[in-house]
Amino acid sequence: MERSSASMWRKLNSRYNLVGTECENCKSLYFPSRIVCKNCGRQTKMRNKTFAGTGEIYSFTKIHVPAEAFREDAPYTVAVIKLDEGPMVEGHIVESGKEVKIGTRVRQVFRKMLVEEDEGLIHYHFKFEPV
């Protein structure tokens, strides 16, 4: 995750609210956003699409040896979520007392993803909670 104010600012919509894109031509949905539709090429007519943030776990793994930025969080679970609208999204899973398994229903929640050391920024991001 980039530690710069500008790159963080550009990605707030996608990180806070799961804003991706939809091709108005063929109705294909993308997350993260794409500029050019895979199907329509030069005929692409993209617009922003806010996903509802609900879906199910398609696959998951538990991270025991984390990247340096997440050393305090380990072990933690990362999953591929199949959103109800179709796209697959990678996300951290937060504890809710519900079992984490393939097919578990999840909802988007708002959490801290990364806290820069000392005097830096706090990066907020969507995560997913089993429901």
């Binding site: 305090e72 969080d73 937060v94 504890e95 929640v109 708002f110 959490r111 801290k112 993803m113 706090i122 907020y124 995560k127």
Partner: peptide
């Protein structure tokens, strides 16, 4: 709070 919750994340969940 969980390690990844603070007053801002709680405020956002309540606000939504």
């Amino acid at each position: 709070p969980s390690h990844d919750e603070d007053a801002a994340t709680i405020a956002v969940e309540a606000a939504r």
